[in-house]
Amino acid sequence: MLASDDDILARAEEWRKAGRGVAIATVIETWGSAPRPVGSHLVIDDEGHFLGSVSGGCVEGDVVTTALDVIGEGKARTIEFGVADETAWRVGLSCGGRIRVYVEKVD
């Protein structure tokens, strides 16, 4: 299902109210040719279901993994992806851009 960023936040609220552990990942900064603009969201639940996107599919897997940690620990994290970080991260952006993603738990 294609969802706008607005639908995604509505879904995050629904999921949380249904008692699921929920995290919201948001693109907070981009450099170069980033696939999704600042403000784009990915919503993740404690079973790894997700909705939305923060990239064209390149880094979502890693964001979901981080989100599961964040749901467990409760502390927000900022993660960065990009060509320059290829050695540090398992995934990168093939488009050559860099993005910073803020991952927070919905309490």
Binding site: D6, L9, A10, E13, R16, E104, V106
Partner: peptide, 23 residues
């Protein structure tokens, strides 16, 4: 993000009001 902030963001959109969440 607190659930109440998320609710307020969603409510504001439904009611066509402007809000900013500062993190």
């Amino acid at each position: 993000m607190r659930l109440e902030h998320l609710q307020e963001l969603n409510k504001a959109r439904a009611e066509r009001r402007a809000v900013v969440l500062i993190t």
